[in-house]
């Protein structure tokens, strides 16, 4: 288990979500659910972040920003799609300005459905994300050794 997978730092971006999932992401970090006690901190800097929590259904205006944040993050990195809009577009699927799901823009590792996604589901997804993060770190190490 690497240092980053013990206490991964998360970054959050609202990709045209209704705020419901965003405040639940924050609520998961705050007292009540309090994942900060494990050292999981919400950071504003993509370069410090290990896990990318994306909420919302992604539209034409912000798809580039999601890609940009994803590219700025340092490997290994994990993307968690929070909420049903981020997974598939949800209730907004038919809207003209909705692309429908984060996986249309960047590769997603863990899906956390729900409208709005419950903090328990976010925590569960982050825990699954930690396992993925470990795998990716191992693969990265092996690749470096091989090179």
């Amino acid at each position: 288990m690497g240092y980053s997978s013990k206490s991964p730092w998360v970054i959050h971006y609202d990709a045209s979500s209704c705020n419901g999932c965003d405040i639940e992401v924050l609520a998961a970090l705050c007292p009540g659910f309090d994942v900060e006690r494990f050292g999981i901190i919400n950071t504003g800097d993509p370069k410090h972040a290990d896990i990318f929590l994306v909420t919302g259904s992604v539209n034409e205006r912000n798809i580039d920003i999601i890609k940009q944040i994803y590219d700025q993050m340092v490997e290994p990195k994990v993307v968690v799609a929070c909420g049903i809009c981020a997974c598939s577009g949800g209730i907004f699927h038919d809207c003209y300005n909705v692309i429908g799901g984060v996986d249309k823009a960047i590769p997603v590792d863990v899906y956390a459905p729900g409208c709005a996604v419950r903090p328990e589901a976010i925590i569960d997804a982050v825990v699954q994300g930690i396992a993925v993060l470990d795998q990716k770190a191992e693969a990265l190490k092996a690749m470096k050794k091989g090179a």
Binding site: D14, S16, S17, G56, S57, N59, R61, N62, I65, F92, D94, C95, Y96, N97, V98
Partner: peptide, 14 residues
């Protein structure tokens, strides 16, 4: 603005 525009008012037709 426009980062959260989804076009909800249009959904009223469908």
């Amino acid at each position: 603005i426009g980062f959260v525009h989804r076009g909800l008012e249009r959904l009223v037709r469908s």
